[in-house]
């Protein structure tokens, strides 16, 4: 039995189809979602969304963060920013990482909101760099 997957960015519905399994990068760790998963709402950290069909990864997307809503029969991934892994650009990723690092170091650690945001950005940028280097991001 397949599970209905929707990947949605703020600008448009990116993908909607039935798949066998999805692995998403939750804030508390990666989550593999199979049909019949218990109802769950989770935040996402930066990382790769893997789509499995017939025990093989058919599509791989990089998300910079967002949310996912999971019910028994469907999963909706609300991504802040999403790109197919193949389209990631190493140069841009390195640049984003450098920017995030600078912002992280500049931020006032006592300002919890700004600090959390900067560290989220840093994690996401690091994940983007990792997602490009083959082998490194594989589990």
């Amino acid at each position: 039995m397949p599970i209905a997957l929707e990947i949605i960015s703020p600008e448009k519905l990116l993908l909607a189809r039935d798949v066998d399994m999805v692995v998403i990068p939750g804030t508390e760790g990666d989550i593999g979602v199979l049909p019949g998963h218990s109802k769950l709402i989770t935040g996402l950290r930066g990382g790769l969304v893997d789509i499995y069909e017939k025990n093989q990864v058919t599509d791989r997307f990089f998300v910079s963060g967002g949310f996912a809503e999971i019910t028994e029969s469907r999963i909706a991934v609300l991504a802040d920013e999403i790109v197919p892994q193949a389209d990631l650009d190493a140069g841009k990723a390195a640049e984003a990482l450098a920017q995030a690092k600078a912002a992280y170091e500049a931020v006032n650690q006592n300002d919890t909101d700004a600090y959390r945001e900067a560290s989220d950005k840093l994690i996401s940028a690091q994940a983007m760099v990792d997602a490009i280097a083959p082998g490194k991001a594989e589990k």
């Binding site: 939750g26 804030t27 508390e28 218990s38 109802k39 769950l40 709402i41 989770t42 935040g43 949310f67 809503e69 802040d80």
Partner: peptide, 19 residues
């Protein structure tokens, strides 16, 4: 709702609301 929530209701809302 009868969702499980990760990490928890409060901190997820904290992220969800500005979004």
């Amino acid at each position: 709702h009868n969702y499980e929530v990760e990490p928890d209701d409060g901190s997820l809302l904290e992220r969800l609301l500005p979004r």
